[in-house]
């Protein structure tokens, strides 16, 4: 008899728990219904990338000493450098990075002694043809090339400031 009574009480307890938990669940979804969607509508709005994002390279040919360290350290050999002349008369003929191969590992930027090569927060690297993956840094501004690949593309948010790598720790020391 007491078994039946406890079963009866258990039935109502289960029913009550079901009602309460269902209502709570509805409340959760209702809250989300009126919250802002997290979707970033890409072509209209550009996503914000986190700090330290390793995107497209930036290259400053004026400061480059043509030491080829970046070319040698690259694990996938995606950087191609061609130099003419010797000694002080050296001249850069070609500086290419093939983004079809690039790992975005940042090793090239780390070994660069003059910090003329660094990685920006520029994330939009898609292109239509495989040949377009190779960016010729000696020829044109990479941003111009990007405009050529994506006509009508909106301007990207401000690129990473052009500053030598050594400057970063010094600035950090100043801020606090």
């Amino acid at each position: 008899m007491s078994n039946q009574v406890s079963a009866f009480i258990g039935y109502w307890k289960t029913a009550w728990r079901a009602v309460v938990s269902s209502t709570l669940g509805l409340g959760v979804t209702l809250k989300h219904l009126f919250s802002r969607p997290v979707t970033v509508e890409y072509p209209k709005a550009l996503p914000e990338v986190p700090e330290g994002w390793r995107g497209w390279h930036a290259y400053e040919s004026d400061r480059c000493t043509m030491c080829r360290l970046c070319e040698q350290v690259c694990p996938v050999q995606c950087i191609r450098l061609e130099v003419e002349g010797k000694g002080r008369e050296r001249k850069l003929v070609r500086y290419e990075i093939n983004y079809g191969l690039c790992l975005f590992c940042n090793l090239c930027a780390e070994v660069c002694p003059t910090a003329c090569l660094w990685m920006t927060a520029d994330w939009d690297l898609a292109c239509y043809r495989r040949t377009d993956c190779t960016i010729r840094f000696h020829e044109t501004d990479p941003n111009e090339q990007r405009q050529r690949l994506w006509p009508g593309m909106k301007e990207l948010p401000a690129r990473a400031p052009k500053k030598p790598r050594e400057a970063a720790p010094a600035e950090k020391a100043q801020t606090p």
Partner: peptide, 13 residues
């Protein structure tokens, strides 16, 4: 649309 908003997406827009 409701599905999208409940899942913090946009839905057809």
């Amino acid at each position: 649309r409701v599905a999208g908003r409940i899942q913090a997406r946009q839905g057809p827009n």
